[in-house]
Amino acid sequence: MALTVLAVAGWLARRHWPVLESGAVRLALADQGWLLVAATAAAGTWLCAALAQQGAVCAPLPRGRLVAAQFAASAANHVLPAGLGAGAVNLRFLMRCGLPAARAATAVAVKGTASVLVRALLIASLAVACPGVLHLPDGAPAVPVAAGVTVVAAAVLAGPLRGRCRRWLGAALADIGAVHALPRRATALWGGSLAFAVLHCAVLVAVAQAVALPLPPPRVALLYLAASSAAALLPTPGGLGSLDAVLALALTAAGAPATAAASAVIGYRLLTVWLPLLPGLLVLAALIRRKAL
């Protein structure tokens, strides 16, 4: 599946190469001040990820190694599909910090769940502020029903595993309750998750301002959140190809010129993926060598 998505992305890039080339030229001539703002926001995402991960754990974590682990996790996330890289790095880091495997897995899951819920809240809020931007397909009302049927069927079919799942769920809920019993941890978890999503929006908005994309910032942020959520359903490393195509399509469908949309997507990807990728992999190797992972 991932190879198919990447192949389609490569075919689309080749077909629309003149637009991508014009977008790259436009990005090279963009406003440097706005690009600096975008780069600063991109750097802040790793601090926010570290804050959210600390919020999912009751025990204090070593701050320097925690931030380094999030930087390395972002690089690993662009090598393995569907967020597996970041999850594996964080899981290993927490276990190296002394957490049992079950509690480390729960902490990673809690951080991921908080991220999903925060994104859903932001999308709902921006959709109200920007009516008419998002359009649900005709079959959308059936999705919650299908999801409910799937959950019920899974519960019925999981008879032999029900006791084990109940024990695991009980332990996980106990860990979640312990985290939320500490106001500082709960604030770090939800505040860090919210700031992480907002800063990613800020990166794209700042790049859009730099290339003079003719869309208001709230609409750009809403389109980014919706496009990145949709692209997450395709198992490509870091949304490579899928996010680029979906985001560019969303921006052009909202009224942005194709060249400006391509410039915004290229700039966002440069700052969040390609420029930090090699340093992130070097940090990952250093953490492994020092047995921090």
Rank of each mutant, 00 (worst) to 15 (best):
L213A: 06
L20W: 02
G177Q: 12
T106C: 12
V203D: 07
W46P: 01
A72W: 01
V37I: 14
L182F: 01
A75Y: 06
W46Q: 04
G85Q: 11
D175T: 12
K111S: 02
G191D: 05
A188I: 08
L169A: 14
W34A: 14
A186Y: 03
A250F: 13
G239A: 05
V37E: 08
S229L: 14
V203I: 15
L91T: 15
I123E: 00
L122C: 01
G139I: 08
H16D: 07
P279D: 07
R63E: 13
W34C: 13
K291T: 03
V67P: 10
A256V: 04
R167Y: 08
A52V: 02
L281E: 07
A147S: 15
L3F: 06
A208Q: 10
A245C: 02
H200M: 09
L126C: 12
A221H: 06
A147E: 10
A41R: 01
T236R: 00
L194W: 10
A230G: 05
L27H: 13
W46R: 04
R166Y: 06
G87F: 06
T4E: 07
S125F: 02
G10R: 07
L157W: 03
V179N: 03
P160H: 01
E21W: 11
V145W: 04
T259A: 10
G177W: 08
C48M: 05
V151P: 15
K111P: 01
G163Q: 05
G238F: 00
G241I: 04
L233D: 08
V149L: 15
A202K: 06
A2T: 15
A188C: 12
P276E: 09
A39W: 09
P144K: 09
T259C: 05
A292R: 02
G33T: 13
R185K: 05
V110P: 00
A142C: 00
